[in-house]
Design a protein around this nucleic acid. Structure first.
Lengths: 346, 346
DNA sequence: CTGTTAGCGCCTTCAG
DNA sequence: CTGAAGGCGCTAACAG
């Protein structure tokens, strides 16, 4: 560890000028001659100067850092969203602090506090499944830190959101199953406290009804949509002799759990039961490579959210009016060799 | 945005004591009476004081933040490693800045610079596929920032590493394919500049030889192991009439690419060609749920790397001697209903 | 265009 | 055990 701590004063002294000029030059201020700038840059380079970001941050009360809170980094949807965020932020000169709430309200509260305390310039987040009151979400806003919600948002006016049209995606996916010949379609749903799952449920329900099928509450299995929840639902479906030939899952993870359970019981996918759900990337290949899924496009949402956030940050203190971007969902059709549902059994 | 900027001086004034005492109390220094502490804590609470982390950081020249550099966040192995890192770091009171090199050397250099400039307390990283000389990796060390490499390390002495025993994992996986009856096993390998891929290759080769099979260079397909690389290799395998009944892939992504190509050509997995590789989590389910893979245990590596790093940070300036942790790989056996390879075809 | 001055908010010697 | 004083390194008025 060399005591390599060259400050602007050192280079000012070496050049017999004032440190404030050095500061300006290093920030490429227009208020310094090009010639002086170049002398300063050269000297800085020569002396191996490195700006002390901490001092700069303190002085400017700005960190050039964005905070991100997601439920769980290792979910493909979130990690791909983060990839998009990081990419966009990096290009705009921002760093990124990533945190996971692990679906816990308590942790979510702490994290927001921490990010505020660390003076991030903005926050991008997806709320946890436990989040039902939104008081703590105001914390950042009160401190003047703009926030953008993506995917999982909350129902308070004045927020920035980047969302998928979950209702439509859900409707289309269910419709797709019906078109394939499914007559009894179960739904693996998430906590209704999240609008997102509410919407996905509504899309499913409406698609049934509009196609002349009855909506049956006993075919709806709400859970936290972990792999084991999907498996449990599948177990119930097989166990209770419920007639089922299709499953529409609100996420891919539960769908995988259900499928693995079914396959272990020698139920053929998709000949006997067709499965679909929201998904993207490699994980969706697990939902049977041949099946159609609703594209959740994490990377795109991440990019859009970051662009929106940066716009909000730069607009301060004018405080741009909040914005909500809703993406059109699209079905990803894989291998066209999909077989028709032929012989629905329980 | 309330001008809510309460400093230690404000609370000192309110209590008619000095700000330095307040500072000590808030840091729970033993050099303040319990009674005074409690008065101060109460007042701080009451006035809604929030420590200014930036000022604190500047003064202490420490940020309580760890930097992480991985090639790509959305790779499941890395996102699960990050989950483990974040978890452990959070418990120890550290924040985490996450960056992706996108396998680019240039970006990797920049990122290290940025992290050093931001005075992170330590760095955890996996080097990019392009990284062949290691000069830039010394940058952090020179600045007294301890670094731990995980999974993809580099061959310079004095580093801290958390690794998998890739040679053994590879050997075991290949052996496993042989035990299943495979006689002609291809290998999808990564850039040999990374020791990791070198070791995985060696394990494969030695397993063949020790079982009395010839090593054939024409069955080795090196690439950057993206999905398309796997598909290309599979195409070559089918195209050139090479006799193959097994594939051992150095990662899961390429294995998925190969499998999807093969399935599209109506080659049955695993009856005609058995595929295995390093993997973990949901992605590995894609490598045919019935097949065995080598567990890469990202979360565990992340945890260990973080613990090691924090140990190094806390040991300063004594500078603990570097450490290398090597994890025993284990094969994940899935569904025992796996079919034997019956009728190997090209 | 450049220099002077005065902090950002906190922590840490050094005295008492 | 507490107070006084100084400075981390940088930037942003305000002058000249």
């Amino acid at each position: 560890m060399q005591n390599n701590t060259i400050t602007i004063h050192d280079i000012a002294a070496a050049l017999k000028i004032d440190s404030s000029t050095v500061s300006r030059a290093l920030n490429n201020s227009p208020r310094v001659t090009q010639k002086t700038k170049e002398r300063i840059w050269a000297k800085a380079e020569e002396m191996g100067y490195q700006r002390n970001v901490l001092a700069s941050n303190l002085r400017k009360s700005k960190t050039n850092t964005l905070g991100i809170i997601v439920p769980r980094i290792s979910r493909y949807f979130f990690s791909s969203a983060i990839a998009g965020i990081e990419e966009t932020a990096f290009e705009a000169g921002y760093n990124v602090i990533i945190c996971q709430s692990l679906e816990k309200l308590e942790r979510e509260k702490n994290l927001i506090q921490t990010l505020v305390a660390n003076r991030v310039d903005g926050i991008i987040m997806s709320i946890s499944m436990e989040t039902m009151d939104y008081d703590h979400l105001e914390g950042a806003k009160k401190n003047g830190i703009p926030t953008v919600f993506f995917d999982r948002h909350c129902d308070i006016p004045g927020n920035n959101n980047v969302l998928l049209d979950d209702y439509k995606g859900s409707f289309d996916a269910t419709q797709h199953l019906i078109a394939q010949g499914c007559k009894n379609i179960a739904h693996l749903g998430g906590p209704k406290s999240l609008l997102l799952y509410q919407n996905r449920f509504n899309g499913y329900k409406d698609a049934l009804v509009q196609n002349g099928y009855p909506f049956r509450q006993e075919l709806v299995f709400d859970s936290r949509l972990m792999e084991k929840d999907g498996a449990e639902a599948a177990q119930k479906i097989l166990g209770t002799n419920t007639e089922i030939d299709g499953i529409f899952s609100a996420n891919d993870v539960a769908a995988i759990g259900a499928m693995q359970y079914l396959k272990g019981r020698n139920v053929k996918i998709p000949e006997e039961i067709a499965v679909t759900g929201f998904s993207n990337g490699p994980t969706s290949a697990v939902i049977e490579p041949s099946l159609t899924t609703v594209d959740q496009s994490g990377e795109k949402m991440g990019k859009l959210a970051t662009e929106l956030l940066i716009k909000q940050i730069n607009s301060k203190p004018k405080t741009l009016s909040p914005e909500t971007i809703i993406l059109e969902p699209s079905l990803i059709e894989r291998e066209s060799t999909r077989k028709k549902i032929t012989n629905p059994t329980k």
